[in-house]
Design a protein around this nucleic acid. Structure first.
Lengths: 338, 338
DNA sequence: TCAAAAGTGTTATCCTTACACCCATGT
DNA sequence: ACATGGGTGTAAGGATAACACTTTTGA
């Protein structure tokens, strides 16, 4: 897996250069130009499931080249998603940019720079294009949904990771591998941290338990006893999805982004269930409410929802003003006043 | 939330498309290729000042084209910074990617994709290249340093912003402009939020108070009574610096990144002053200490510092283990246990 | 001796967590 | 009637903010 390494490159050119000489900033390079690709993770929550908008019946994310007609990267993303899926986007934010090393194209090796985005919307099913659909996140990451407690798939996965740890050459390596997987997956008495989606995916990848990692290696057989580790995606799209999930799970805690995934009004339970779907965790009802009340995130409407299966519930709306207000979550610095 | 259906449908795909049909993803585009540029904000804290590593005696950030020889974007950034400044980098993270619209080059219009990075290091002055140097952040953003209370420059700036607000065509526009600048700058009874560096810069830019915004408009004279708004930089480098400062000010609150800016051991005061330099705020001594103690971020060493100007102080070291431990700051979700 | 900074303690308040319990409705 | 979810109250414990104060050095 290409992970950006942190070892300094040894290529250090030392030269003598005066103030007048222009340092070559932004000089048109003699190197090959790049293709720029835009990739979108479009997320929604429907029927208590977090979902992602896909092409090719679930095998890839909407994506396409950045073109000169696009006014900006964001505009390009919007354009591609709408063209490919007929779905207009609302809230959108940049995720990450990475450069594949020498992706091969018919016209020879070309490097591609990929800029990924995360968009939050409501699922809409009017006029979808062929092959376009919404799939649960947990189809691709079945070990990430802990709403009903640790999912059954986790046992076999931990077993396979333990075997992987034992395969390591030396004793310290074995210990290190075990420490890492237990830490990432909350095994061995440690707590599950729902934000570490990417770390878990990369660990599985490194352990050869992810289908994508076996690509290219011709006819490498499935490891004996390898557990199922979710549906694969084209290229590294699943990795990008993991990045998006991690980002959203982290962000939901300190910015009011859930509301982008909800209709204009909603009950407390719907709100809580949206957060639960994203975090993959069950939350405490009363305290969740109190949190909303106390942070003044919502205000009541006149509407009452009767399709609750119990007592009718008031519908609330997001207080848009909070976006303008102070306090982006917890100010963890003990400021001195005066 | 949509409640019409209660069955957890896991998949909603409309349309007929086999796995074999290919949607045109990543098709080699007929559009112009791009140059990719890497830009680095290299930050350090020395003598109670947050500093940035610059070229051209303070006018630009280290940058250069991404080349085919680079193994990754990060490797490219490291390579350029070391080549241009002879400074090796430690901690590094991606900031943002943007695409300029049609930057003009000698060979005609070409689009450039810029990927910016933030690096944290210790200042070192061995063998600096000519024109290379470290400058205080606040040379570029003099309104951002509130460690001695609101800086004197803030008065004239608010005055100019008020004039800008009054210039607006209609009454509601005037009101809106006033609301925006007061909100961003903590004027009119509102609190200063040190994280909103980029918003403040962009507001000044929009108001025509930033030198960079007057570029290209030929011989547009300095507005009468326009206050000094810091040193300018080449292109949009100052904007990138604003993004970096904002990011660092936010991140320092929930991730232990300050330690990347400090030597291996340090006193509490040095630690506090580094945070103060970055945040541009004074912090409460005792409570700051308590925060460090309680979060177990540091551990004492045997060393005692005598050059304190007062009672000697113990030197501490960062507990690297915390990076591996739980709790990424505040878990703002009331999880249910069991 | 005094300035300067290190370092300790105490209090009131607020936030978080965890329980316990009642309310209103549809079936 | 009862299951289901809506909605309220309260008490313990921990974190935070704001003070007040003592200690130890160098100059």
């Amino acid at each position: 897996m290409k992970t950006e390494e942190s070892k300094p490159v040894d290529r250090v050119t030392v030269g003598v250069m005066g103030r007048g000489d222009k340092i070559k900033r932004n000089a048109p390079s003699a190197t090959v130009p790049f293709d720029a690709e835009l990739i979108a993770v479009v997320a929604a929550v429907t029927a208590r499931m977090p979902r992602v908008l896909t092409l090719e019946t679930g095998n890839s994310l909407p994506s396409g080249p950045f073109e000169s007609a696009h006014r900006s990267l964001q505009a390009g993303v919007r354009s591609w998603v709408e063209r490919q899926t007929h779905h207009p986007l609302g809230h959108i934010e940049q995720l990450y940019t990475f450069a594949d090393r020498d992706r091969l194209e018919s016209s020879g090796p070309r490097r591609v720079i990929s800029v990924s985005y995360l968009a939050l919307t409501l699922e809409s099913r009017r006029d979808p294009a062929p092959g376009v659909g919404w799939w649960s996140w947990y189809r691709y990451f079945p070990w990430e949904d802990h709403r009903q407690g640790p999912p059954p798939i986790l046992g076999p996965i931990l077993g396979a990771l333990e075997r992987w740890a034992m395969e390591a050459p030396g004793v310290p390596e074995r210990r290190e591998r075990r420490r890492r997987y237990r830490h990432a997956f909350g095994a061995g008495g440690q707590a599950w941290n729902e934000e570490w989606v990417l770390q878990r995916y990369e660990l599985l990848y490194e352990a050869g338990l992810i289908a994508e990692s076996r690509r290219g290696m011709e006819e490498m057989e499935q490891e004996r006893d390898a557990p199922p580790t979710g549906e694969a995606m084209v290229q590294d799209h699943r990795r990008i999805l993991a990045t998006a999930i991690a980002r959203l799970r982290a962000k939901i805690k300190y910015r009011p982004v859930v509301f982008e995934l909800l209709p204009a009004t909603f009950t407390y339970l719907e709100l809580q269930q949206a957060v639960e779907a994203i975090a993959g965790l069950r939350l405490h009802k009363q305290n969740f409410r109190r949190l909303m009340v106390q942070q003044k995130l919502v205000e009541p409407t006149e509407a009452i929802e009767h399709q609750t299966g119990g007592r009718p519930a008031r519908r609330y709306r997001f207080r848009r003003e909070v976006l303008m207000e102070q306090a982006p979550g917890g100010a963890r610095l003990p400021q001195v006043r005066g």
